[in-house]
Design a protein around this nucleic acid. Structure first.
Lengths: 219, 219
DNA sequence: TAAAATATTTAGATTTGTCTAAAATTATTT
DNA sequence: AAATAATTTTAGACAAATCTAAATATTTTA
């Protein structure tokens, strides 16, 4: 199946809307892709004709299993390149997405599998999002809000809900990054705050609100 | 200056024809790009309107200094990616060109400069072709046919003239690759053959014809 | 349940890069 | 130098991906 960069972007965005917000419709997709609703309709017809999409006029649409497979390939490429850009080239988190958007459209499977190997077959990208393997299988890792994480169990920070500058400032203060290892020591019922131990640092206290927005893998 | 992948491919090909064969005309460019002469004319007008090209109808065309600069940027990206594909991912020589053709169109300067640094600022790509630096300057390295290389001086194999399977078979037999370090020990006048010492191997003899087609950097 | 609001699709145009076939220009040959 | 050959350009068409504006369908609301 040959796909143009544009077709790939639509597939990826449909996949993303299906999984993040559940609801996918012409307008939300147009908003995400910053294009017109008319363009969405045009492309839906095209993707349907390529058998990647179920689509009925006015009724709705959704990726079929072939479309899902393609989406997972694109996501795999995107996330592996993001990992490369951060871990090997040392680029900043904020700058990598745009570049990975371009690199992801290079469709050589051999390239991607060798890149995967070179990077040490990472399970997650720098944002903590899982990287599908070469069969399109997402590694399933139980991910919990730090707030819900059991006491005295070692966890690995997997993602944060909003990557605002304010959030980044706070994480920076605590010395928390994706991949940071930590433990919850105690919950204070009074204000919902938590006492935690971050690896190689002294114990500290973090607010309940913060702990709701930091996600951790069981480990 | 924003350039589409297609425009970049034209610029690169014009540069290549100008430097390799000297003569650039509509038909030779059409042959190289595997497209029609009419398409060439169309693009020449466009590149002229973008002030990258001098062009007079029926008369001829050539990159101006802005066009040359763009060409060198594209070549830099291409060769750095080729180096990456071979040296970091371990891909085969034959497969890398096609992939680098795609990667080269990702135009982020920060990406390319970080990649350059990550790769150790290589001077040449896996084929031995020089990689322009970030100012668009080609590293000038004196390159000589092995046949003409002075006796008892250390040289680095920089390129081979024809990359035919026959040539590759022979190079493989001798254990010669791009980057291989060697010395010429003796010239046999009788048949033009040379006795050479390849690093970490026993001395051996190579024919004059072979030695005319293997190029070496002074070192 | 009509009317109004919202969402989606169609119709027709535009841009980019390409094509073929014909016309124009330049080069070569007799 | 005229005829022929080769090269280059133009004219007009096409496909992909987009757009705006109008038409159509669905949903909400009063």
């Amino acid at each position: 199946m040959k796909l143009s960069p544009s077709e790939e972007n639509y597939i990826k965005s449909i996949y993303s809307l299906q999984h993040k917000s559940g609801k996918v419709n012409t307008n939300s997709l147009a908003a995400l892709l910053e294009t017109s609703a008319a363009s969405i309709t045009d492309m839906l017809k095209k993707l349907k004709s390529k058998s990647l999409l179920e689509y009925k006029k006015y009724y709705g649409f959704r990726l079929n299993s072939a479309g899902n497979k393609e989406a997972l390939k694109i996501i795999r490429r995107h996330r592996l390149w993001e990992f490369f850009l951060v871990e090997k080239l040392g680029m900043d988190w904020e700058k990598i997405h745009e570049i990975a958007e371009e690199l992801e459209h290079v469709r050589s499977p051999e390239l991607i599998n060798k890149l995967d190997f070179f990077l040490g077959k990472p399970k997650t990208d720098p944002h903590g999002d899982p990287i599908p393997d070469e069969n399109g299988v997402m590694p399933v890792m139980k991910q919990l809000a730090l707030k819900e994480f059991p006491i005295n169990r070692k966890g690995i920070v997997s993602s944060v809900s909003k990557q605002t500058p304010e959030m980044m400032e706070m994480l920076n203060h605590y010395g928390i990054k994706i991949g940071t290892s930590l433990k919850v020591l105690k919950h204070f019922i009074f204000d919902g705050s938590l006492q935690i131990k971050i690896s190689r640092q002294a114990e500290c206290v973090i607010s309940g609100i913060a702990a709701q927005n930091i996600f951790v893998y069981d480990n």
